[in-house]
């Protein structure tokens, strides 16, 4: 797999940056000429991952969120979202739909959305060190697509 293009941004875990993060990744993804549905899936998954960093990883504090996106020669977009927050104690439990530690106004569906809207999702985490999630979205190949040239 060859990486054709890449961008990296670091943003503080302020909730105002949720909209910025999904807009940044979706603007980058436009090079792959995704459909509107594919772009919506990407925006939604990024929004969930960044919200997890804000609500869970850093909680009441502000820390950095590291976002990397790569366009690859198989017409896929890889997104890595990493934090240096509290880490996840039990990844399997955290990924169960409707499980949340954040109280009644959070649905506990963040990972379920990422899993369902992207083609793959990998989560790694160390307590006290942070969490890294890697998601891949395959983009349907269309005639006008020239991102990999």
């Amino acid at each position: 797999m060859k990486v054709i293009n890449e961008f990296k941004i670091t943003i503080p875990s302020r909730s105002a940056n949720e909209a910025f993060a999904r807009a940044a990744v979706s603007s980058f993804a436009i090079q792959l000429d995704p459909t509107i549905d594919e772009l919506s899936d990407i925006k939604t998954a990024v929004s969930e991952a960044v919200t997890n960093c804000i609500v869970h990883a850093y909680r009441e504090s502000i820390g950095n969120i590291y976002i990397t996106a790569q366009i690859r020669d198989d017409y896929s977009l890889l997104i890595r979202i990493r934090d240096k927050g509290c880490g996840i104690d039990n990844i399997k439990q955290a990924m169960e739909p409707l499980f949340t530690t954040a109280g009644g106004e959070r649905a506990g569906l963040g990972f379920a959305v990422m899993q369902s809207f992207m083609d793959s999702l990998k989560v790694s985490s160390k307590l006290g060190k942070g969490t890294s999630i890697t998601m891949i979205k395959k983009i349907s190949m269309r005639i006008s697509n020239n991102a990999t040239k």
Binding site: R22, K43, T44, R106
Partner: peptide, 16 residues
């Protein structure tokens, strides 16, 4: 124009 699972939290909270 956009909604993530925070919207689900909003709907479920009002439903309750």
């Amino acid at each position: 124009t956009f909604m993530d699972s925070s919207g689900i939290g909003l709907v479920m909270g009002r439903y309750r």
